[in-house]
Amino acid sequence: MKFYNLQAMRGVAACMVFLIHLLSTKHGLGADWFLFKWWWVGPAGVDLFFVISGFIVCYTAAKAGREDLAPITAATRFGIKRLFRVYPVYWIVLAVSFALAPYVQTADPGMAAERVWRLVTLATTNNNRVVLAWTLCYELFFYLVLALIILIRPKQVYELVLGWIALQIGLTIWASGGGLQMFNYVPLSPLILEFGAGCILAFMVDRGVKAYGWQSLMAGVALFCVAVWAHSQNGNWAPWWRSLYFTIPCALIVYGAIAIEISSGVTLPAWLQKVGDSSYSIYIWHQLVLAILLKLTEMSGLFDVLPGLLILFIWGVIALAFGFLSYQVIEKPSQNWIHRVMKRPERRELSHI
């Protein structure tokens, strides 16, 4: 089952992150006043992404576990499909980033360099080539957890996921005693609990829960606004604060969006769903594309010719267009290919009868 509102919410999350990086590409272009306000909103798109991913991946894992396959086969198919969701586009972005490194600055100069193999495998959150790829480390850890659960008890995915969430809460509480530096280790970070929230939503929806959709959506938006204000008072996007403030509001928003679609057939605009389809490509490409556009604009002298706001608008259009192009040319074909390859053997055999 495809949830159209979930795709639209991915579009919302991508736009939140995209806008904060567009505005911060260069100061003094006439939008700094908004940048300082959006700073407390935009990065929460990541938290929304994590909750959505928790829902989608857990829902998919439960479906995979119910198929009539050996546990090792089900876990392998699930894992390979998820890896192809991340790596093909990322590797191309990483390669372009390496190629342009002498000419384009894609990370803070003070950021420590990482070994190439750690960047290629996403074995570090300190990615000095594709900065935004730190979130992919969390995604991959979550994929690993779900693949192991399918391998152990494919028919009881939700039961084991709930046990894992309880364990994760315990690990997070234990890690908090060692100081904030403990949260640099992905398995100990409270951000993992945002995936757990999405898992709980998947369990509820899979069991037919669909009541109070509008109320949940409105409550989630209201609490999100409260979280933005509260976080601006005493947080700075540290893992503990952002998960504390944004997990529940994002979960309510995601559940509300799904519930109103199931119960009343109300869906968010089709154009926003299209943005959601391309959200990963938009997310992983946009910082590099904006860095390239900044360099080209400086070299061409356009800063002295065009108004700053117009430059930001042009950059935004080009970066978004590049994300859509990446989805059509790289991401979608690679996804289609791996789904064809991973079809059940008996289905391929039947197709020849």
Rank of each mutant, 00 (worst) to 15 (best):
T25N: 05
A291N: 07
I20W: 13
G42I: 13
L132S: 10
Y280R: 01
M342G: 02
A31S: 15
Y280L: 06
W229L: 03
S263K: 15
G110R: 13
V221D: 00
L23N: 14
C137D: 03
V46H: 02
F36P: 05
L288F: 01
V96F: 06
I314P: 13
L94V: 13
V209G: 06
V120G: 03
V254A: 01
I282A: 04
I56C: 07
V41G: 06
S216A: 11
L302T: 12
E298F: 11
E114Q: 15
G316T: 15
W237G: 00
D277C: 08
H339E: 05
W229D: 04
Q181V: 13
A75C: 10
S216D: 07
L136K: 03
A166H: 07
G208S: 08
R10A: 04
D32E: 13
F142Y: 11
A270Y: 08
L140T: 13
L83G: 05
V116S: 11
S189C: 03
E194N: 08
M204A: 07
V145Q: 03
F303C: 06
R10F: 03
I92G: 05
L302I: 14
Q273E: 04
L94P: 09
L22Q: 04
L19P: 09
V131F: 07
A113M: 11
L19Y: 11
S232G: 08
L167H: 10
G308F: 01
G79Y: 07
G256H: 00
V317A: 12
N236P: 01
E67H: 12
Y143K: 01
P239N: 03
V205L: 01
S300D: 04
I282Y: 07
G30M: 09
W164I: 14
M299S: 10
F303Y: 15
D304G: 09
N126Q: 07
H286G: 08
V41D: 06
Y283T: 14
I169M: 09
L136T: 02
A64Y: 07
V157Q: 02
L310K: 14
L191M: 10
I169P: 01
C225M: 08
F3M: 11
A31T: 15
F224C: 02
G316P: 13
I353K: 04
T135F: 05
E139G: 04
V89K: 05
T172F: 06
A112M: 14
I149C: 01
W214Y: 11
W38M: 09
L223D: 00
L310E: 04
R242N: 03
W271A: 06
I314K: 12
F322W: 12
P71L: 02
L132R: 09
A75R: 08
Y87S: 09
F55S: 01
F322I: 15
G42Q: 02
G323Y: 02
L119S: 11
S326G: 02
L167V: 15
